[in-house]
């Protein structure tokens, strides 16, 4: 199979959908001729022109609200934020309008809007360019929240996002964007709410999200040399969340660790843990453990930045601790 980067994989899905569906258009800063700060739209401007690759002023609230209106009236906007942090200026439009519109209109209006942006900590981007925020969106009824970890998933999930009539947040960790991986040719769609088994094992279950997936798999491969058999599950979408796969794994292993770069309080790990306690309490042989990024704004200086992100040695230690419980 040929290899693509994560970004190239989503670009392929976007290009293919835009070729088929003239109602899809993209808005964002620098997504026209420039092809996107993260190369998310390279080449599309030449193919589809300035109305469908629409370079915007720095008007986040403006163009998000505008895209809500567009989605309610027959088109399918893709909003490309470059850094997801900039979405926060449009929070009212998102939470009060976009997430609630289908409900408020008793299902007579659709909200096919795709909101994408780069997330995550790294490269001293500091606190206005490092946010992930997906637990916030997962908390709100009405959003689909997608956090792909590998290029082939990025393509298939992006295709699903482009077909969705619900608002989708498609969140791409900066450290993954230029990773290469096998990506099938042609169109395919991966349904939301289906986790991927990233690594099979029997001693413990590691649920890892986004940039933590590859890191966790690498750690578990290494632990295998010590006879430890860890299973790694990548939920791929946070909302909906594939609890069935997680529960099934926990029923086999009896131990659960959730590894997530975002904040621990009220986070994805808390939700998964609560649901496992509700549905799989008797399967547990040890307390559920969580490994998260520190609960602080993101600092700039490399030694500080390093201190707040779960690294491979932290993951390894957490797994060893969990197995010793």
């Amino acid at each position: 199979m040929r290899e693509l980067t994560y970004v190239e994989a989503t670009l392929e899905a976007l290009d293919s959908a835009m070729a088929r569906d003239p109602s899809i258009f993209v808005v964002g800063e620098g997504i026209g001729e420039r092809g996107g700060n993260f190369n998310t739209t390279v080449g599309l401007y030449d193919k589809y022109g300035p109305e469908r690759l629409c370079d915007t002023p720095i008007s986040e609230r403006g163009f998000v609200g505008m895209c809500a209106g567009a989605a309610m009236t027959g088109t399918r906007p893709v909003v490309d934020f470059m850094f997801l942090d900039f979405i926060l200026d449009a929070f009212g439009e998102l939470v009060n309008q976009i997430a609630k519109m289908q409900y408020m209109s008793s299902g007579r209006l659709k909200m096919p809007i795709l909101l994408r942006g780069a997330i995550g900590i790294g490269h001293s981007a500091a606190t206005h360019h490092s946010g992930s925020y997906y637990p916030i969106f997962a908390h709100i009824p009405g959003f689909r929240v997608v956090v792909p970890a590998i290029p082939s998933d990025a393509k298939g999930l992006f295709a699903t996002a482009l077909q969705s009539d619900d608002p989708v947040l498609f969140l791409e960790h900066k450290s993954l964007l230029f990773n290469r991986g096998d990506v099938p040719e042609g169109d395919y769609a991966i349904p939301f709410g289906q986790a991927r088994m990233a690594r099979e094992g029997s001693d413990c279950t590691v649920v890892a999200i986004g940039s933590m997936v590859d890191k966790s798999v690498a750690v578990c491969d290494k632990l295998a040399e010590d006879g430890i058999s860890a299973e790694v599950i990548d939920p791929r979408t946070i909302a909906p969340l594939d609890m069935a796969t997680i529960l099934e794994s926990v029923s086999k292993t009896g131990r659960l660790l959730i590894v997530d770069e975002t904040f621990q309080p009220c986070g994805v790990g808390a939700e998964i843990a609560a649901q496992v306690i509700d549905e799989g309490f008797d399967d547990l042989d040890a307390p559920i453990r969580r490994l998260n990024g520190a609960h602080v704004p993101t600092p700039y200086s490399p030694p500080l930045e390093l201190a707040i992100v779960p690294e491979t040695n932290d993951i390894e230690q957490s797994i060893r601790n969990l197995l010793a419980e």
Partner: peptide
Amino acid sequence: GRATGCSQGRGGSMH
């Protein structure tokens, strides 16, 4: 990114 910076290394250019 040093401790002696005006934001003690927490901020960098944009902070």
